[in-house]
Design a protein around this nucleic acid. Structure first.
Lengths: 117, 117
DNA sequence: GATTTTCCTGTTGACATTCTACAGGAGTGG
DNA sequence: CCACTCCTGTAGAATGTCAACAGGAAAATC
């Protein structure tokens, strides 16, 4: 029972993918997943059923674009690349993340100086 | 159209509420919202339509308990209090948060030493 | 050359959570 | 009385994640 809340908070995956593409350049879905899991070591598993729809979403919004190609292992693969709009979006989402993270950090502390009169 | 992604990533609100109650002790919904907004300054708005259902959820799971009382302004209010199970849950969620935040921070850096041969 | 493994792309249906917008009651102050 | 603040909710829609399933083509193994 109990079990399994979401691993990745909603809205976070986009940021992860965009940032990964920003670093790696054109990469296929499988490669993105491998990359993220590698950086996360064992702390995160990527679901294909989450990643691929996310890639479709991102492309529909114009944040990434794709082209068929051939992978290092000589297999048909769809390579994704971040667009200019995607870079902007990445920036927006990272700022949002920092904002939320900042709030959470502050909430965690008992009492930030409130009035400071 | 477009508009309005979620302000608070899914699963984060619980953590915020639990942590706030942990600090403040028995507090009513309105007070929780005020407190969080205050700490967040202008960076986050709490929706009542999100908060109240969340409080119901948290109580159903035994993480908080409630009792009717009277507020500072002499109004009927439901005071929520974190339970022992709630404290445990808070710890779980904060660890999860730290884990995710760590991964994101690492992803953001271009290349952590990978193979180091 | 047949079988297994690895690589790579998807789809479907269930589920949880948040958002917007609405509705109302009970004190307080003018 | 009338408006305003305080305080508690509900309904419906939208979004995104998860688990599980399905398949094809190159490479490695036997």
């Amino acid at each position: 029972m109990a079990g399994s809340k979401t691993e990745v908070p909603q809205g976070t995956l986009d940021m992860l993918v965009l940032r990964t593409l920003q670093h790696l350049g054109p990469t296929h879905g499988w490669g993105i997943a491998r990359r993220i899991e590698q950086v996360a070591e064992d702390a995160l598993k990527m679901n294909q059923g989450t990643l691929y729809p996310a890639l479709v979403r991102l492309e529909q919004r114009g944040w990434i674009k794709s082209a068929w190609g051939v992978s290092d292992h000589n297999r048909r693969a769809r390579f994704y690349q971040i667009t200019a709009r995607g870079s902007k979006q990445l920036q927006v989402e990272e700022e949002r993340w920092d904002r939320i993270a900042g709030i959470i950090a502050r909430i965690r502390q008992p009492f930030p100086e409130e009035g400071a009169p």
